[in-house]
Design a protein around this nucleic acid. Structure first.
Lengths: 349, 349
DNA sequence: CGTACTCTTGTGTACGTACACAAAAGTATA
DNA sequence: TATACTTTTGTGTACGTACACAAGAGTACG
């Protein structure tokens, strides 16, 4: 007669020992006679013992602190949704005694990152979630955390090495392919310009991977007769599109599609809207500016990288790892959501 | 000096009463002198008392049983992912002492539904999740549950009335608009056939709502010059597309787009693939058959209704309502995911 | 045979909540 | 003032786990 859930008490009774002994066996704390050990293990093998997480955590009664290290959303609005994700996760895991602390750094300033990373280590948290923008510095931080025994997860940007416990983000190569597939649906052929903004900025790998996927897809047979060109621009920190960009848009009337590999598609859209050009424009991320042009029709599709969910999942994963000692999933790839003006609202939330 | 979390013990000390009295106040169990009541309430208003859910549930130590009432996936494969969603949710909430029991009914047979609904009531669960295919019968069941005090949520199909506590699904009208927006991106104009399969089947409302959204979107100015026609077919239970359908596809070479409002787009795709027609085809749901044609290119886009997540969320919502007495969200609309061959893999799992 | 020691096992208590029950305080009646 | 009764308050215990500590069993040696 099997029960649904067994307790240490049940096991003790079955093995005819005390619950203290059972506990020692379960936690491998030694000091158990060979014979007794076997007796208990036999019972443990028979039944499927699952410790009651509620009781376990109640007993432990520890408050875990998680550090969230991300770029300042007031400097790069791409990171704005991370705050919402953090907040949502915070409410949820607060019940289980996990607290969050946010550390923001300037995404254009390496020093700012290292300073905040130092601050994190100083505060000695029980876990950390990191957006590893700067490769070298992030690697250093990961190793420091590893030494300090702080489990750490990364999101948004994958960093292949270091003491990372898990990654949450998107397959960038594949996301380039998705963009390609959209162009091949909408256009039969023609010139498509691939535009990178601020490639000197840390996330060059992002753009390269996307371009690689994009070109790979459209290079396949039967996807259309496309001519692909790549271009790099600096986005002005504020306001109007730069001169070079304006120049380019004027001098390239034959372009029938534009693929922007960053969240700055609105820069292009602004110019497109001015000239009533009917170029097909695909970009990334649900920034307010992008959304505006998506609704106007100047942007045809946006690909949603979902930083909010990335943050949310990263935090809850870490929290459950600490509180319920769930294993950390090594790699979690989020869907590459295709957004039009009509399904937009559901991704905003 | 404020603490992060207060316990009843803390409150008792602050109010200079025993924890038993605090408990009575918190749970409004009466038998507390006016004066004492005020003393405790004053403390409660000062601090933000959040009962420890772990301890609360540990004490309660009740196993909640949830009933899941869905159509038989072996009869309509659309419901297959619900099993995966159920399983995933089951693992998660099992830790909190919530058990699931599945009840499947024949989606083509009202009697089968009422029989299973009866079975659910017989088993007297602590909560229920329902796919309310049959309107009248579902309403009856909802009311029965209401009388029996069983909290119930619905998913997939919205049922505006009855004793429902919450709904999880998609905005069908809007999903029709999404399909419309995709056609307007890919085609400039021409004839688009809207095809309903098995409209006699219970989910006629689904199809009508989708068509309404679809027509509304494409009827707007500047969306293109489209000519929309509606058609109804029966899908054969097994195997080859029906004669009428074959007839239709032959006799309508001028059709440049087809919108299938159900999960049977593969029926059309099969015929399209035979004739190497280059009609634009958009349908619903990631059935194995649909996926096959999506990859081949015979289907251009699929709209993902995500029954797996619908089930998963419904169950976890109910479980958290029971175990952690979280309020049930009245209406949760999932994103209307646009799926191509390139982002497909991330929606599968 | 007693002492000192190790090895092994069992008991008690805490975590925070919820509730049963006992105890105390207050009120009414003889 | 004693008695019976109601109202109010406090204490004890359970949920299941984890760990400190006490107790018991066994061995070695003077």
């Amino acid at each position: 007669m099997r029960k649904a859930t067994y307790t240490v008490k049940d096991i003790a009774k079955l093995a005819q020992v005390s619950i203290g002994t059972v506990d020692r066996v379960i936690h491998k704390r030694g000091n158990v006679a060979e014979e007794t050990l076997e007796k208990v293990n036999r019972v443990l093998n028979e039944i499927d013992y699952k410790p009651n997480v509620l009781a376990r955590n109640l007993k432990r009664n520890k408050i875990f602190r998680l550090a969230i290290l991300i770029p300042d959303p007031t400097i790069d609005p791409y990171w704005g949704p991370c705050l919402a994700g953090t907040k949502k996760a915070g409410q949820e895991i607060g019940l289980y005694g996990v607290e969050l602390r946010l550390y923001v750094f300037n995404p254009y300033n390496t020093k700012s990152f290292t300073a905040q990373a130092q601050a994190v280590l100083q505060d000695n948290p029980d876990g950390a979630l990191l957006a590893p923008l700067f490769y070298r510095e992030s690697l250093q931080f990961l190793n420091d955390c590893g030494k300090a025994g702080v489990p750490i997860m990364t999101f948004n940007t994958s960093i292949g090495e270091g003491e990372v416990k898990g990654f949450i983000g998107q397959d960038l190569y594949q996301s380039g392919r998705v963009a390609g597939s959209l162009f091949s649906e909408v256009l039969k052929g023609g010139e498509i310009a691939i535009i990178h903004f601020n490639e000197s900025y840390e996330n060059a790998i992002h753009m390269q991977e996307k371009e690689r996927g994009f070109r790979a897809f459209l290079g396949e047979p039967k996807k259309g007769d496309f001519n692909l060109t790549s271009h790099k621009f600096q986005s002005p920190v504020q306001g109007e599109p730069g001169k070079e960009l304006r120049q380019f848009m004027k001098s390239a009337p034959q372009v029938s599609g534009i693929f922007v590999t960053t969240s700055q598609a609105y820069q292009i859209a602004k110019l497109v809207a001015e000239t009533t050009n009917d170029v097909v424009l695909i970009g990334y991320d649900l920034l307010a500016e992008n959304i505006k042009y998506l609704k106007q029709g100047a942007i045809n599709f946006l690909i949603h990288q979902n930083p909010q969910t990335q943050t949310y999942l990263g935090i809850t994963h870490l929290a459950e790892h600490l509180a319920l000692q769930k294993p950390i999933q090594e790699k979690k790839l989020l869907p590459i959501d295709i957004v039009t003006s009509e399904n937009l609202e559901f991704y905003l939330e």
